Amino acid sequence: MADIESARKAFDRYDLNGDGLISASEYKSVMAQLGDFHVTETVAEAVIKAKDGNGDGLLTFDEFWASFDRS
């Protein structure tokens, strides 16, 4: 079960430029830092798109938080 504080820390780790949004390039970059070099730009875009509620190609914290299983 995720808690909002942990989710915020995770979100902030992915939000490299601090603008309050996670882009595909930020996601790809962080995944590489974590050792997953198989995440291409295309894969990163697909991950963002799957969670992107408003279709702008970026994740807000609310969209990120909504993707967690909080049951």
Rank of each mutant, 00 (worst) to 15 (best):
A50P: 05
A50T: 04
G35S: 11
G55A: 08
E63C: 10
D19S: 05
S29R: 14
A2F: 09
F68L: 10
F61T: 02
M31R: 15
D62Q: 13
F37W: 08
S71A: 09
W65E: 08
D52E: 04
G55W: 04
F68S: 07
G57T: 04
R70Q: 12
A32V: 14
S71G: 13
T40D: 06
Y27W: 14
Y14I: 07
A66G: 12
G20L: 02
A44V: 13
F37S: 12
N17C: 11
M31F: 08
S71I: 06
I48H: 01
A32C: 13
D69K: 15
D62L: 03
A44H: 06
K49P: 00
L16R: 10
E45F: 00
A32E: 11
A32Y: 15
E5K: 13
M1R: 14
A2D: 01
T40Y: 02
L34E: 12
K9W: 03
F37N: 15
L16T: 09
Y27T: 13
A7Q: 11
F64H: 05
E26F: 05
F37K: 15
G57V: 03
D15V: 12
S29T: 15
F61R: 05
A66W: 01
I48A: 01
D69F: 06
Q33I: 08
I22F: 00
F68D: 06
F11T: 02
I22T: 03
L16S: 05
N54Y: 02
H38S: 15
V43S: 12
E41W: 02
A44T: 13
A2R: 04
E26S: 04
A50Q: 11
K28N: 12
L34Y: 12
N54W: 04
F68M: 10
S25F: 07
K49M: 05
M31T: 07
A32L: 15
T42C: 08
F68R: 10
G53W: 00
S29D: 07
Y27K: 10
L21N: 13
N17T: 10
L16A: 11
A66V: 00
V43C: 11
G20P: 06
E63A: 09
Q33H: 11
E41V: 09
V30Y: 02
E63Q: 15
S67F: 04
K49W: 02
S71R: 09
V39G: 07
F11S: 00
A10F: 02
I4A: 08
L58A: 08
R70D: 14
S67Y: 04
E26P: 05
